[in-house]
Amino acid sequence: MLYQKIKYFLAQTAGSLWQFRTRNIFSVTIICLSFLIIGVFLSLANNLSATAGELAANISVTFFLDADLPQAATEALAAEMRRSPLVLGVDYVPAAEALTHFRESFPELRNVLESLKTNPFPPSLEARLKPEAATDEAAVQGFIASVRARPGVEDVQFNQDWIEKIRGLSRLARAAGLFLGGILVLASFFIISNIIKLNVFARRNEIEILRLVGGTNTFIRIPFLLEGMTLGFLGSLLSLLVLLVVIKLFPLYLGPTLGAVREIFEFRYLNLAQSLGLLTAGALIGLLGSLTSVSRFLRA
């Protein structure tokens, strides 16, 4: 009997989805757009936090040197830096190599570089810090200050600030996504609720007959709940597909103008937990939307 009822519910749901297909397509589109907003911001937050993670795993301090600093003094400084317990390794980057690297990273700025008569980049010593150094900011600052005070060291660049900034942006993107998406999801909840209400209203005679021949409220309600869940699920599934297409096409659209930004952002898709979370949320929104409208009708 249960099998027969399940078959009946599925047939009813499919029938109703088809019968009211125009308004159902509208409903799925609205849900899709709401979840797409959340998806875009989640994807952005993923990219930012992954970038911050990569940077944190490779914390380095770059000490820019006087172009005229003798080779011996540079090597002595590098050797002294290597002795610090915070340092994993030290690399010397000559001015020419820095110029080459910049040209590769920013091909769109090639013209600017060519208009310059001399190489604007100074040589540098890049100290790669041990991962545990990230947690001991005072020690790192002490190390930077001691090296910075040495003759021939002109400037210093430390990527810790960037990591913090990117992490902050990641948190901001996630919060913005959840806030904007939350508002839109709430709107789609009311839209589903009203669309199901229209469907219920259009089938009120049928509901009345079902009640009078002994159909329980649950029996009457289930096809509508399945319908709402299906709309919510399809909407969120569609949003994941659209997001996938956007992520694949966006870098192609931006193309050569991306430059180094492409290195930072790999346009990562949502992870499995996030994707499943969005699908579940979609189905749940649909379920709740239809539950409120059907219950209201059955009470009347």
Binding site: M1, L2, Q4, I209, L210, V213, G214
Partner: peptide
């Protein structure tokens, strides 16, 4: 068929 579907009889 409606009253019979309500009680879940086989098709």
């Amino acid at each position: 068929a409606v009253p019979l579907q309500v009680i879940g009889l086989p098709r």
